[in-house]
Design a protein around this nucleic acid. Structure first.
Lengths: 193, 193
DNA sequence: AAGAAAACTTAATGTAGATTAAGAATGAAT
DNA sequence: ATTCATTCTTAATCTACATTAAGTTTTCTT
C-alpha cells in the first residue's frame, strides 16, 4: 500500500502537518483491480474519489452500439472520478476499469467532504487540482474541434510519452476519437511524428 | 454595478460573514464590454477571473483557417476564464468577447489567490465550482464523442433554453461543433425537437 | 505447447458533416 | 428611409473518418 505517492502529490501544492497527514491517511481505503476489472459501473452511484498508485485505470462511456469512448486514462499519480455522479448522486455515466493489473486508494464521499472541511489546506489542494483539470479539459475540447486525428495522435504522444509506450493501440484510438482501423491505417500509411 | 448576483451565487454553497463579504467586494473590478468587444485576446496573459453580470460573453479559439470554435458561453451568473493561462501565465489560447453588450466583474489573479488564502470559505466555494465545471466538461466530452450533431443540438436546447432564444444561430453551430450551413440545413430539412 | 481470444492490419464501400458558392433575409449604421 | 454588413438559406461537391469484412499477428489461457 503506497501512500507516499499521494502525499508527495499533495506536497507539491500544500504542506500538511503531521496530524493532518495522519487524519488524511486514516480515511483512505486501498484496493487492487485485476486487468479488465470494473471499478465503477455506469448506473451505479460514484461516491468515491480514486487515486491510482499502480497500473492504469481508464474512464469511458459506452454508446448505443456498444462502442467504448475513453474519456481519461489514470496512471499512477492520477485521480479519476465520475464527477457528476459524485456531486449529485445521480447514476454514473462513466465506467472505470483497469487496463492493467492496478492498485488504487480512495476516499468515500463523506470522508472526503469532511476532510476538506477540517483541513482547509487539503481543500486548497483540491481547488488547485480542479483548476488544473479544467485547463486540461478546455485544451482537449478545443483540440478535438480544431485538429485532425493525426494531429491529435501526435499531441497525445507528446503529452503522454510513457502512456504511448504501454497502452494498447485501440485504447489510444478510442481516446483520440477514431476507430482502431483508422488509427492503424493512419499510422501505417504515412510518416508519423 | 451588480454584486448581488455574485454574492447570491456564492451563498448557494457557503455563507460568508459581513467582514468576509466586504473584503471580497473590495477586490472586485467592474467593466462593460460592447457587443463584439474583446475582453481577452489569445496570446495575452489571462490573469483575471471573470464573472458575468449582464449580457453574454463567450470564449473561443481560432483555427489556422480563421474559423472560430466556441468553447463556452457565459450569460449572467457564469464565470469565464482561460484556465491554463491563468494558472501558468502562458499566453492565452482562448479569446473572450461579448456576444451582446455586457457587464462583468473580475478579480486579478493576485487578489483572487489572496482571497482564497484568507477566506477559506471562498476557497471552498471555488473547489465546488471547479467540480461542477469538471462534471460539465466530462459530459460534454462524452456527448461530442457519442452523439450526432442533431442530438447535440437538442441537448443544448434542453440544457440552455434561455440561451437558445437569444443566441445567434451561428454561435450555437460553433458551440455544438458544426458549420452554420450544416446547422441551417439540419434544422430546416427535418423535424426538430 | 496448443488453442482460443484479442488486437492489429488491410481494403472496399459508405456517411456525417465540411467546403464552396451564391442568393435571400435580417440587422445595423447613417 | 436607404445602404451596407451580417446572418441565414440552399445546393452541389468533397472529405475525413466510419463501417463492414476478413486475414494476420500477438497475447492470453490452460
Amino acid at each position: 500500500m503506497d501512500n507516499s505517492l499521494l502525499l508527495s502529490s499533495i506536497a507539491k501544492y500544500v504542506t500538511l502537518d503531521e496530524q493532518e497527514e495522519q487524519y488524511l491517511l486514516s480515511l483512505l481505503h486501498y484496493k487492487k483491480a485485476k486487468r479488465k476489472q470494473l471499478v465503477l459501473e455506469e448506473g451505479d452511484i460514484s461516491s468515491k474519489v480514486i487515486f491510482v498508485t499502480a497500473g492504469c485505470l481508464r474512464s469511458y462511456a459506452v454508446d448505443k452500439n456498444g462502442t467504448e469512448h475513453v474519456l481519461q486514462f489514470a496512471p499512477p499519480g492520477w485521480w479519476i472520478v465520475d464527477m457528476r455522479s459524485y456531486i449529485t448522486g445521480e447514476p454514473a455515466r462513466l465506467n472505470i476499469d483497469a487496463i492493467d493489473d492496478s492498485e488504487y486508494i480512495f476516499f468515500n464521499k463523506i470522508d472526503f467532504e469532511e476532510l476538506n472541511l477540517k483541513v482547509p489546506k487539503f481543500e486548497r489542494f483540491n481547488r488547485i487540482l480542479g483548476q488544473n483539470a479544467i485547463a486540461t479539459y478546455q485544451h482537449r475540447q478545443i483540440d478535438n474541434a480544431i485538429f485532425a486525428a493525426m494531429e491529435r495522435y501526435a499531441n497525445f504522444c507528446q503529452l503522454y510519452p510513457s502512456l504511448i509506450k504501454t497502452l494498447p493501440q485501440k485504447q489510444v484510438a478510442s481516446y483520440i476519437g477514431v476507430t482502431p482501423e483508422f488509427l492503424s491505417k493512419m499510422l501505417n500509411t504515412q510518416i508519423v511524428k
